[in-house]
Amino acid sequence: LTDEELVTMSVRELNQHLRGLSKEEIIQLKQRRRTLKNRGY
């Protein structure tokens, strides 16, 4: 997933992508998404 996709994707879509990932990967992705959102994309 690109940063842009992460930010513009709805939470529902995101959760579908996260299905099948490990807990660590999910946590990393969610942190990255929060960081991007805070940057004001």
Rank of each mutant, 00 (worst) to 15 (best):
R33W: 15
Q31Y: 07
Y41S: 13
L6A: 00
N15Y: 12
L14G: 00
E13S: 04
E5D: 10
R33M: 11
R12M: 11
N38Y: 08
S22F: 03
K30I: 15
E13D: 07
L36P: 02
Q16C: 13
N15T: 09
R34T: 07
E5G: 02
I27G: 07
H17M: 09
N15M: 13
V7Q: 07
L14E: 01
L21V: 04
L1N: 00
S10L: 03
E4N: 07
N15W: 12
T35K: 14
M9H: 04
E25Y: 06
G20K: 09
R33P: 00
Q16T: 07
E24C: 06
S22L: 05
K30E: 06
V11H: 10
T35R: 13
L18Q: 02
T8L: 09
G20Q: 06
Q16I: 12
R19P: 03
S22C: 04
R34P: 01
R33Q: 08
E4D: 12
E13Q: 09
I27S: 10
I27E: 12
V11M: 09
V7R: 07
Q31E: 13
E25I: 12
Y41Q: 14
Y41H: 13
D3M: 03
E5N: 05
L6I: 04
Q31S: 11
E4W: 15
E4R: 08
K37N: 05
R33K: 05
S10V: 02
Q28E: 12
Y41E: 12
L14P: 00
R34K: 13
Y41M: 14
K23F: 10
R32F: 01
Q28K: 14
Q31H: 09
T8R: 15
K23V: 11
Q16F: 11
Q16Y: 10
R34I: 08
Q28M: 12
Q28W: 10
R19W: 04
G40E: 14
T8E: 09
L18G: 02
L1V: 07
V11C: 12
L36T: 03
K37A: 05
N38A: 08
Q16V: 10
L36I: 06
L6F: 00
Q28L: 13
G40H: 13
K30R: 11
I26N: 04
R34L: 06
H17A: 11
L29R: 01
R19C: 08
V11T: 10
L1G: 00
E25A: 12
L21F: 06
V11E: 13
Q28V: 12
Q31R: 11
R33V: 09
S22E: 06
E13N: 04
E24Y: 09
L1F: 08
G40Q: 14
L18Y: 08
L14T: 00
M9V: 03
I26S: 08
L36K: 03
N38R: 07
E4G: 06
E13A: 08
E25H: 07
E13P: 00
E4C: 15
R19K: 13
Q16M: 13
R32I: 03
Q28P: 01
K30T: 08
E4F: 13
V7M: 14
T8Q: 14
N15S: 09
H17E: 02
L21Q: 04
E4P: 03
R39Y: 11
G20W: 06
R32V: 01
R39N: 15
S10G: 07
H17L: 13
E13V: 06
Q31C: 06
S10Q: 03
L6Q: 00
I26R: 15
E25G: 04
R39I: 14
E13F: 02
L29Q: 03
N15K: 13
R19D: 06
T35P: 01
D3K: 01
N15P: 01
R33A: 07
I27N: 09
L29N: 01
L36Q: 03
T2L: 04
R39L: 15
R39D: 14
K30V: 15
E13G: 02
R33Y: 15
K30A: 05
E5A: 07
I27Y: 11
L6K: 01
R12K: 13
S22W: 01
K23T: 10
G20F: 09
M9W: 00
K30L: 15
L1H: 02
R34D: 11
K37P: 03
E24P: 09
L29S: 02
N38E: 15
E5V: 07
V11K: 14
E24F: 09
R32P: 00
H17G: 01
N15H: 09
E5K: 07
K37F: 08
L14S: 00
Q31D: 10
L1D: 01
D3Q: 01
V7E: 07
R39H: 13
S10H: 05
K23C: 04
M9S: 03
T8A: 14
T8Y: 08
E13H: 06
R32K: 05
K30Y: 13
T2N: 04
E5Q: 14
L18N: 02
N15G: 06
G20D: 05
R33H: 14
L18C: 14
Y41I: 14
T35W: 15
M9N: 02
H17V: 11
K30H: 09
E13C: 03
R32C: 02
E24R: 10
R19A: 09
L14D: 00
K30F: 15
L6N: 00
H17Y: 15
V11W: 15
T35Y: 15
N38I: 07
E5C: 13
L18S: 04
K23S: 09
E4S: 08
T2V: 02
K37W: 04
L36N: 03
R39P: 11
H17W: 11
R34H: 08
K30D: 03
L29D: 01
K23D: 08
D3H: 01
E5M: 12
L18M: 14
L18R: 00
D3A: 02
V11R: 14
Y41W: 11
H17T: 05
S10M: 03
T35V: 13
L36M: 03
L29M: 08
H17P: 00
R32H: 03
